[in-house]
């Protein structure tokens, strides 16, 4: 599993870390899938890598993170369905965005 730990923040936000598994990393197709998956959830999601932060619902934002294979994404979800959103994203990452 890539999902290392869960932290619950003051405002009820949940943060987990994921390692990017697919060979080509977060390029356009995975980013689009990422955004599409999150569009089903109400929660706000931010994705952080190496001090760069982007919205999980922005394709262009996710691309700027340069999430290569092996890099770690710190994903924070805030909202009523935060845990479900993180589960869905976790599955996507674990399944290598249905790529490799």
């Amino acid at each position: 599993m890539t999902d290392t730990q869960s932290n619950t923040g003051d405002n009820g936000s949940i943060t987990r870390e994921f390692t990017v598994l697919n060979k080509f990393g977060i390029h356009a197709r995975p980013a689009a899938l990422f955004v599409k998956t999150l569009s089903r959830f109400q929660s706000d999601v931010t994705v952080e890598r190496d001090a760069m932060v982007a919205s999980g619902k922005s394709i262009m934002g996710l691309l700027t993170l340069e999430g290569y294979q092996g890099s770690v994404l710190k994903i924070t979800a805030t909202g009523p369905d935060a845990a479900d959103a993180l589960d869905a994203i976790g599955e996507l990452i674990a399944r290598k965005f249905y790529e490799d």
């Binding site: 390692t19 598994l21 080509f24 977060i26 356009a28 691309l63 290569y68 294979q69 092996g70």
Partner: peptide, 20 residues
């Protein structure tokens, strides 16, 4: 445009890719 940006990005990501 979409394809070209993606190709550029994939090259960049492959260069930095780490052993798991």
């Amino acid at each position: 445009a979409a394809k070209e940006l993606d190709e550029k990005l994939m090259r960049l990501l492959l260069e930095r890719k780490q052993k798991l």
